[in-house]
Design a protein around this nucleic acid. Structure first.
Lengths: 329, 329
DNA sequence: TTTTGGCTTGAGCATTTGCCCGAGCGTTGG
DNA sequence: CCAACGCTCGGGCAAATGCTCAAGCCAAAA
């Protein structure tokens, strides 16, 4: 939805969002948020109507032309992060404020993750970053500022095709490369093969070896974490079938990272399902920084398990979920 | 005005801003800008009155707990920057949007400068950065995120005392070190000595040699640029006397960087005034990135001269001023 | 050429936000 | 102990903002 439209801008009528309009939106947002002008003043400045000024500001925020960042360590969040860091020997932990209310905040976690990703990308020395998929990660990548970093490599740790061959809407590695000019190494396979034979076949391809060798060099990995259950992301997005799901549930799976299902101790399962995953295996215990992110009460057991089993050594979540994880322990 | 209050928070009544309140303000701003909640919802969430929620949000923005960043290259600004880069062979140039209206935007330039400074500070390898003084630079430093970067060194290129011995309110090097944990090397002298003898004396001190040797290693320098004239920053802030000012004007000075006055070709003057400056000399032509920042029609001739004379090889200014500089040429 | 469909536009209105003011409360100084 | 001061609080109101809607516009399709 984002950068795709920017290139074009054919003469005459244009259904999408023209560069001209984005320029204007950027100016409007600049005047509004940075200069603190009112929308009336902006309208006068840019020679548009008052409600157009408002639309431009809204467009700029929706398109992420303007970003909000918090630069203040909220005491409770810092304390919570320290407790988690100590408890699970994490190399990194960030807790964003949470709300009592309803559903958890993707936006906050996304921003934190984006900052972390940016900090790796800002290094001059070429680095390899690995990414998983998922809503959270996609939101995170959308928050990364565009930059010109062709020296880095981004490798996708998980296939970008759904079961039926459609491209996943969450091909975050590609998106990140678009935004940063890094080299992209996607995994052009389904997440799970139909059977072990097919997996072997896929893994004998050259690109698989390329990806595998890159994985050994990663500076850091970022991935979502999913709970296992009806209505879990893995299931609703069509990556696994109903049958596979119920097999996993009866094998006591509580969560998954990159599709690898694990039990409440964070031990990877030996179910047929895990045996059919096309992705390179997880390093256990994690050596390079391996940062999982996600929020929501349902994810808490999965997070706890992943950290206990040393499947990950970094965490980004919100206060509420963090509290729940510590409570479970 | 910013971080100074955070440490305290004595029990009981407290005139200043308590940490508790800043925490709350941060939460309010988070909910408002990042989660997009209304102030009513925030009030309910944080158990405060509606107008308190509004006050908290206002406090958070005023204290800079929440930051606005633009991540979109506005076409006109990019083009303008390229023209300046080509014309003056700059290593860096950033143009922020301007307004037709009144006075120029400190905020915008400050943000751009802050990002640039952050990019140097984010490097792992120890680096030396040099800073000048001035309103613009102070605003820029206030926009730099806090971080823990004890490996870097910040050296002040200009004395931090006014003529009469007061500490300058713009001791930006110190402020930046506060925010970043970098090592600070201030220049504990007046900007100008009373006479050449005193300058020699000051420059024979050990700290002067320390600073001089650091200056040779700088990765980048950031400084404001001032015009010379009645009402110019150098004058109104009391760094130079009326007499000195009129001497400079009659010597055809059009601008100054760090106090060093130069003419319209960017040649440093040989007036007695320049001879009494206590700061280490400017490298001409600039070798390491030397970035000047400032905006306003009055500064345009000074900027043009500084760039022509290769006193600086980087520029941050606004559209209006940039256009004026190119026009003068 | 006419129709259609999608998109944009500005007017009008409901909501949200910012700010001023008088009341309340705790502290300081007499 | 009391008065004066300064600060904070929440009510109320004016300004600013966001949203909906009907009309208009343009290009593609008929």
């Amino acid at each position: 939805m984002d950068g795709a439209e920017r290139g074009g801008g054919v003469a005459g009528r244009d259904g999408g969002i023209t560069n001209r309009k984005l320029d204007l939106a950027a100016r409007a947002a600049w005047l509004y948020y940075i200069r603190g002008r009112t929308q009336d003043e902006i309208a006068a400045e840019l020679n548009v109507s008052r409600q157009n000024a408002q639309r431009l500001v809204a467009l700029a925020t929706a398109e992420g032309l303007i970003k909000f960042r918090m630069d203040y360590p909220i005491t409770e969040c810092v304390e919570m992060a320290e407790r988690l860091r100590d408890r699970f020997e994490l190399v990194f932990c960030d807790i964003v404020p949470g709300e009592r209310r309803d559903e958890p905040s993707l936006a906050g976690i996304a921003i934190s993750a984006a900052e972390r990703i940016e900090s790796y990308l800002s290094s001059k020395a070429p680095a390899v970053l690995a990414l998983g998929t998922g809503r959270t990660l996609r939101a995170a990548v959308a928050q990364v500022s565009s930059m010109e970093r062709p020296q880095h490599k981004i490798v996708s740790l998980v296939g970008n095709l759904t079961r039926d061959g459609r491209a996943s809407p969450y091909d975050v590695a590609m998106r990140l490369c678009d935004r940063t000019g890094a080299q992209c190494y996607p995994l052009p396979t389904p997440v799970v093969a139909d059977d072990i034979e097919q997996r072997k076949l896929l893994q004998s391809q050259r690109w698989y070896r390329t990806v595998s060798s890159l994985v050994l060099q990663v500076k850091a990995s970022f991935m979502g974490i999913g709970e296992i259950g009806w209505g879990s992301p893995l299931h609703v997005d069509g990556f696994i079938t109903d049958q596979e799901l119920s097999d996993l549930v009866s094998a006591h799976a509580v969560g998954e990272m990159l599709g690898w299902a694990f039990d409440q101790n964070g031990d990877l399962l030996t179910t047929p399902f895990n045996g059919r995953l096309t992705a390179p295996p997880l390093a256990v215990p994690a050596t390079a920084p391996t940062i999982i992110m996600g929020a929501g009460a349902a994810k808490a057991p999965a997070i706890r398990a992943a950290l206990r089993g040393r499947l990950a050594n970094g965490l980004i979540t919100d206060e509420t979920t963090a509290a729940r994880v510590l409570e479970l322990d």
